[in-house]
C-alpha cells in the first residue's frame, strides 16, 4: 500500500497540520517508508498470538473515586490567551 499526494493532504488536514507542496512530497515519502515497514511486519504469521494493546504486560491501575483536585481556575485562566467570566475564549466555532 502506498499513499497518494491527495491522501497526504487529507491526513494533514485531519491533524490540522499545514504542509506546503514540497513538504507534502517529502512527507509522502516518509509515510510510504513506514507503510513498507508495516507491510513487512504484516507478512509475519501471527496465528495464535493475542493482539497486543500495550507494550507492557500489565493491567491498568485504578484509583478510588474521591475528589482530590481543588479549584485552581485562577491559575489556569492566567496562562490562557483570552478569558472572560471564568471561560476560556476561542475563535467562534459554531457553523
Amino acid at each position: 500500500m502506498s499513499l497518494t499526494l491527495e491522501q497526504v493532504h487529507r491526513i494533514a488536514h485531519l491533524a490540522r497540520i499545514e504542509v506546503s507542496a514540497s513538504e507534502a512530497l517529502s512527507t509522502q515519502g516518509h509515510l510510504n517508508g513506514i507503510f513498507q515497514l508495516i507491510e513487512q511486519m504484516q507478512a509475519v504469521d501471527t496465528t495464535g498470538v493475542e493482539p497486543m494493546a500495550h507494550a507492557q504486560d500489565l493491567a491498568q491501575r485504578l484509583r478510588d473515586d474521591v475528589v482530590s483536585e481543588s479549584d485552581r481556575r485562577a491559575a489556569f485562566l492566567a496562562v490562557a490567551p483570552e478569558t472572560e467570566a471564568g471561560l476560556y475564549l476561542v475563535p467562534k466555532v459554531i457553523e
Binding site: E82, A85, P91
Partner: peptide, 9 residues
C-alpha cells in the same frame, strides 16, 4: 463574547 466562543471544561 465579542464574536468568540466561551469554553467551560
Amino acid at each position: 463574547f465579542h464574536g468568540k466562543s466561551g469554553i467551560d471544561l
